[in-house]
Nucleic acid binder design. Structure first.
Lengths: 205, 205
DNA sequence: CCTACCGATCGGTAGG
DNA sequence: CCTACCGATCGGTAGG
């Protein structure tokens, strides 16, 4: 069990190096949490793969949960930002929803590891943090819901319950994280376009 | 290991008692696995809620994973059965897909606890069992995929990749397990109809 | 179906 | 960022 000597202190400034290490821990943890799940992954697993020991992680994070939180938090931040930009942009309600769906799927599929952890493991956060996550997620669900309601009012969109519509459209997009194969024949952009097209037009020709 | 099987016990005076106990363990485990997740739920938690002690569970199950497997397995069985009945029934490809989607959503929402466990925790089964689950799931995905391809060939359905279409339609239906509120204003049937309607027609009026 | 208990794992800390 | 280690939890078993 001789530990692999980690390549110590690259000749860099202290702050930058610390940031790299933190980023590296997050990256490795993200991959492992996705592969095995949060509880099956031990801090030793993470440390081993990086090449140092468990207590090193506590130099950068206060707890295991904090590592998960860092991953989950970055995802929701990113999503919320993109949503607002598109929702506040030009176009009819229907056009903006289309743009939203394409962008949403793209964002998920381009960062599959972190998004998988987000959707699979966020329920394991402390009640307080989980509540906060739900709150921020509701914010961007609400952005789309009000867009949909606007489209129904103007007669542009199918008249069903806007909450059901929003949840269904987003769900169809989100679910791609479970079946998309980065090594498959279709690219992220192709899949994102096809999903959005199907939702816009329906499967009946 | 030289213990009596539950089957032997069942033939006693108490009749279905053994079976009831097993069913009760599954029911309680399903609720707890959904609430807290598989790994956060201990066998003591399950036993406590029923009112006996942990070793009693080992009278009915060989391991904790076997309890999870019993839950997950029943779900995939049920889904596969319903899928085949509808797919082999009457109607055009589009009509059968519609019926499939309504029924699929209904089945999930009527049995939310077990389906939530199925979709959230099945990845925690042993590699062998997980592979088996994936296999059976692919069977019913394939049922729908070939229906979709048939509809594209006949010109009835939107011409996109049948695999993408199938995954997206099913995903939109499945995702309802995450947002449906049994105490909300819409019933299971209403939600199932609205989802299917949206997918059939698209959100653009 | 119970009491009693074991072995292993693991998050986290002390102290350097 | 390391060595050494603790306390608690927990799946599972022995033996009745």
């Amino acid at each position: 069990m001789a530990r692999a000597t980690p390549e110590k202190r690259r000749s860099r400034t202290r702050g930058q190096a610390g940031n790299d290490r933190r980023t590296q821990i997050i990256k490795v943890a993200t991959a492992l949490f996705r592969e095995k799940g949060y509880h099956v992954t031990s801090l030793d697993d993470i440390a081993d793969r990086i090449g140092f020991t468990k207590p090193a992680i506590y130099y950068y994070f206060k707890s295991k949960e904090d590592v998960l939180f860092a991953i989950v938090n970055s995802i929701v931040d990113e999503a919320l930002e993109r949503f607002r930009a598109i929702a506040d942009g030009p176009g009819s309600a229907g056009e903006r929803i289309h743009a939203l769906l394409v962008e949403h799927t793209r964002t998920i599929l381009r960062n599959l590891d972190a998004n998988t952890v987000f959707y699979n493991e966020r329920g394991l956060l402390s009640p307080k943090r989980e509540k906060e996550m739900r709150q921020r997620e509701r914010e961007y669900t609400e952005v789309m819901r009000s867009l949909y309601a606007e489209g129904v009012a103007s007669g542009e969109l199918l008249d069903i319950d806007p909450s059901v519509a929003t949840a269904t459209l987003l769900g169809a997009s989100i679910w791609s994280y479970r079946w998309f194969d980065p090594k498959g024949r279709l690219s992220v952009d192709e899949v994102a376009e096809q999903i959005a097209k199907l939702l816009l037009n329906g499967y009946r020709r």
